[in-house]
Structure formats: C-alpha cells, structure tokens
Design a protein around this nucleic acid. Sequence first.
DNA 1: GGTTTCCGTTGACTTTTGTCAACAGAATTT
DNA 2: AAATTCTGTTGACAAAAGTCAACGGAAACC
Lengths: 193, 193
Amino acid sequence: MYDSLIKYINSFASAPLTESGIEVIKKTFIPKKIRKKQYLLQEGEVCKYMAFVVKGAMRQYSVDDKAAEHIVRLSIENWWAGDRESFTMLTPSIYNIDAWEDTDALLITKADMSLLNQIPAVIQMTRKLDDNHAFAYQKRLNAYISLSAEQRYEDFAKQYPEFLQRFPQHIIASYLGITKETLSRVRRHAVKK
Amino acid sequence: MYDSLIKYINSFASAPLTESGIEVIKKTFIPKKIRKKQYLLQEGEVCKYMAFVVKGAMRQYSVDDKAAEHIVRLSIENWWAGDRESFTMLTPSIYNIDAWEDTDALLITKADMSLLNQIPAVIQMTRKLDDNHAFAYQKRLNAYISLSAEQRYEDFAKQYPEFLQRFPQHIIASYLGITKETLSRVRRHAVKK
DNA sequence: GGTTTCCGTTGACTTTTGTCAACAGAATTT
DNA sequence: AAATTCTGTTGACAAAAGTCAACGGAAACC
C-alpha cells in the first residue's frame, strides 16, 4: 500500500528516504478505500485531506446553477486529489471530489503535511510538484485561450493517453470545456484525417 | 527602487528582513528599465530572469500560426513577469514578454534565486506565491470551462479592476480568450443591464 | 499642425459550439 | 434473464463567438 507512495517520493528526491523517514510516512498517511461515487470532498466543506491515489480514479469538478458538472481535474494512480485552496486556506470549497472507480488512497492532513515538510525528500517533492503544477496549468490555460476544441482534444490525447482509457468521453469533454456531442464530432473528424 | 520589493517581501514574512538580508537583496536584483515595446523575453529564448515590476506594465503572450497574440499573463506594479517553466527548466520559451508601458523592473537569475532561498522571508514569500499562483490558476481554469465570455469578463473586472485601467480592451479580450469585437459587445450588453 | 497609428464600435455574414431529442449497444443492477 | 442506466453517436436547429470590413475619434509621432 505504501510502496507506491514511497517510490513516488523517492522519484523526486536526490537521496532516497531513510528508514525512519519511511516509518514517519507510514504512520502519517491514512489508508482509505473510497468506493465508486463516494465523495472525498463535497462543495461547501473544507478540504481536510490531500489524497495520494494508490489505485483507482477520481475527479474534481464544480457544479453550475444549471446542475452541469465542470471537471477541473482528473487523478489516477500516482496523482494527487484535493482542493489546494480549501486545504491550505481552510475555506469552504466550491468543488466536489469523488471516486470514478473504486479507489485506494492515502490521506494526509494539513498539520501532518507541515510536519512532513521537514524531511528533505518531501521538501524536494513538494517543490517539484509545485513547479510541475505551475507548468501544467500554464500550458492548459494557454490551450484554452489559443486553441480550438479539436486541437485541445488532440493535445490532451497525446499528453495523457491513459486518461482516455480510464474515463468516458463525457468526462473528457467536460475537462476540455466542451460538450460530449462536440467531442464526439471532433473525434470523428480527427479519425477521417 | 528597492523599497517596493522589500516591502513586498516583508508583506509575506512573519518577521521582516534583517539589515543584512536587505543588503543581499539590493546586491542581487539587477535594476533594469524596459521601454515600451521592448522585450524581456522572446519566443525561442531561455528565460534568464524573473522580473519584479516596480513601475510599469508588462504582458506575456504566445503567438499562433496566424500571427495572433494570446495573452496568458499581465503584470503591473508589485507583480512578477517571466516564464517559470523556461526559467526553471532552462528550456526555450514559447512565450514573448514585453513592456506595455515604460517599466522599471528588478531582475534576478536562477542561480541568485536559489541563493536567496536561504533567507527565511524569501522562503516564506515563494511558498505563499506558489500557493496564490495555484489558487489563481485553478480559478481561471474553472472560469474557462464553466463560464460564458460575459461572465468571465465580469469576474475579471471585479477581481482586477486596475487592469481595466491599464490595458486596452483588445489586450483584455485576448487574456479572456475572446476577440476584441466580442468583448465590445459583451460590455455594451453588460451596461444595459 | 498635420499625419499616422491605435483603439473601440458596429454591421453583415460565417463558423464553431451548444441544445434538445432520439436511438442503439454495452454495462450494470436487480 | 429482464430491466435499467450509462455511453457514444447522430440530426436538426439555436446560440455564441469569430471574421472581415468600415468608421470616427483619440493618442502618438514627426
């Protein structure tokens, strides 16, 4: 259960976690099974945990006044789930996070996270994650303001092919900011080319 | 010149910069005047500097195959300019950054930045900035996938009223991911209400 | 002071995307 | 095994946004 997290942390570190570091990790993260359709976070709540996905798939989305869901993030194995703003600022979230598949996750609280931020490997991980996070957001943002639906889909398919396997098209469409019908047409068109 | 930067850093810190800390800052950041239309960074170059804007206004944008500019970021006083991905990864940037008004900036290199990251106040600043950055991007992204052009404009106008004063409408439109004509119509419509 | 560029607006038309409804096959539930 | 839900596709039409062209006023430049 913890193996994948430890491997994950080490992949960011210049020197691997020590034995005692591993112990701390194991004591700190809370294993949790989240069944399909169960919530990790609901709109209006404060996000108490960041979740590392060991196995499964989750989605984060806002719901508009017409009850339409808008997916802002998808997480599968070795990704995180959680609303960073709510988590760090302790403010009510505007997002929902739920499991799309039965999921094994490792949860951590804010207090424990700041404790862990003494461990060198963890510090390096969070730095790198912050960087990668910022890069990815910048790219995605640029895609929204400069690319058509079709180009955005192609970019997405190239960059995250696993996601296409794990989530149905209406989820992908929502993530891309288009309707499922538009995505369906875009794909047909792309195949023809 | 350095006063506003020092004030800025202190605003993020639990304890203000020491005298020696201030000295280091003054020695490290390079003052630079950037005239209107001059580049801080051009597409294809590596972003060598992060720029703290003391006075003036800058914009960061990509250019598509039809030579259209797509503005991803705007910076005025007390904001930063620079392409984080290129800066940290030393990869060629896909963005241009230029001055929209005559600008006084303070530049810092990557090497100097890691040196400064020993100073407690600076550490706290970068942490907070990373957080705020992530919050803002998440919000903006959610706006793109869930709001209409009109709603996005209204959100923007409410959240960044100063920007409306400093940049012409075609710049704002590009930032919002719409054309200047659409923005013009959206505004007329909004006034009527 | 005159010229040029920039800026915002508007109209007419096109393209892209959304909406609504229907349908069929697959998967899931009972 | 039957019923239900989920998923992806398609068609007809509507709405939103883009494109192109023209215009006038303001600002910047010489």
